[in-house]
Design a protein around this nucleic acid. Structure first.
Lengths: 118, 118
DNA sequence: GATTTAATTAACAATTGGATTAAATATTTC
DNA sequence: GAAATATTTAATCCAATTGTTAATTAAATC
């Protein structure tokens, strides 16, 4: 039953998925490649030095995480083209900014405390 | 020797480590707690609803990734106090900004292409 | 319509990651 | 100095991830 494992299952959020998707060098390489424009699955596999199946799985991770999106081009319906999804990383940025904001606020408060009461 | 696994070992960068450290709900919860100030290991474990050993490992991950730092307080050397490390997430932010910058540039170029060349 | 091409899915092996309990390490307190 | 406290490390288990090869799907080409 594995009672303990289930005990503390924090729900997996979108932020988890996005961060996990980007926490892999191959997948981040894909994002780096897609910064310059949409690419085929095959191009990405070759550029990243990965087999087609391996790349396919990475692309799925990125797609499920909302980082990229897929399209079938009209000129050849076998091909799948991937591109970055706008706003995909907004969640991360927001969280980072909030963290920084709180944290610097806390630092300022500490400094004030030292100057006032120290 | 697991020949296939070794074949494509992209080096693990600091960015990988930081992202991986943050891609876990428990660890991100720790960061959220530390936003408001330094906390003891025990406090963090309790607040996150984790056993002490489990929390200890998460704290190590975060420390190795450079997200937090540890200190021994003078009043009780058994205790370990953790705090956010300034600039820990600068790398992520930089990468995100660069991605966005390239990507919006690419979008602008595409728009210009449509308007110019029909 | 048979073959080639682009890509995904399936099945499997190996690695990694996280949680647990028990033991170890300091350090404080009585 | 013995007992209690704060935390980490060790050993083990289970689940998830990643890569590989083989098979599948679907569409283009000859």
């Amino acid at each position: 039953m594995s009672a303990q494992a289930a005990r503390n299952a924090l729900p997996r959020t979108a932020l988890d998925d996005t961060l996990a998707a980007l926490a892999d060098p191959h997948r981040r390489r894909v994002v780096d490649l897609l910064r310059h424009g949409p690419r085929r699955a095959g191009e990405l596999a070759e550029a990243a030095g990965l087999s087609a199946p391996a790349m396919s799985r990475h692309l799925r991770s990125l797609r499920v995480a909302g980082v990229i999106e897929e399209s079938h081009p009209a000129f050849d319906a076998r091909v799948r083209i991937y591109r970055l999804r706008p706003g995909a990383m907004a969640g991360i940025k927001e969280w980072l900014d909030e963290t920084e904001r709180f944290w610097t606020g806390q630092l300022a408060a500490f400094k004030a405390h030292l100057e006032g009461g120290g």
